[in-house]
Amino acid sequence: MSVKQGLLALLATEPMYGARLRAEFESRTGGTWPLNVGQVYTTLARLERDGLVEAIGEDAEGRISYRLTRTGRAEVAMWWASPVTRETTPRDELVIKLALAVTVDGVDVNRVVQTQRTATLRHLQDLTRLKQRATTHHEAAADGDGQVDLAWLLVLENLIYAGEAEVRWLDHVEARLVREANRPRKSADGIPTTVQDGTTDSATRMVSNALKGGTR
């Protein structure tokens, strides 16, 4: 997530000073991606240098508010109009861990899968409780609060769908390992054998998928 784009989008609603920008960003995303205020001011300084925002003076308490320039408005419009690209997807530790688990001797892969699934299900339970609370609050809220609740609900639901996808993938890994263990293989001399471990082909596929995740 680009902090830059987030701040620009918020400034398109009205001029704001740094601490307020941070508070608005966090309340609209439910505090899921906390910003430190230093990061906000560094970003604002860079945006000002690049001509995307301009300071409009201090208030009584000495806080400097910023507003978008014409270039800044164009930048925001461009952001809304463009898809988010996935070229820089971060490396996924779980994918890499499982890819390594099937290739490193002595690791109980099933146990790795089960431990992760239990943890992910617990995480999903926590998220669902939060969602239940947020939904109740949203239904009772006035218009202004309701919009912020809605934003938070959408963030929660994204995390829930991501957790669900992870559990489905873990189920798939488990089932594949069973199939793989029972798959007849041709040995070096051409005689089919059943391989109980050393699942090199699936390992190759998993490593390749993990590496597609990013190369930072």
């Binding site: 299900l121 999903l124 339970q125 669902t128 829930i160 957790g163 489905r168």
Partner: peptide, 16 residues
Amino acid sequence: HEARHAAWADRVVFLR
């Protein structure tokens, strides 16, 4: 069979 639905429970038991 859906984790998203199971997450409404207090406890999730997984059978294999």
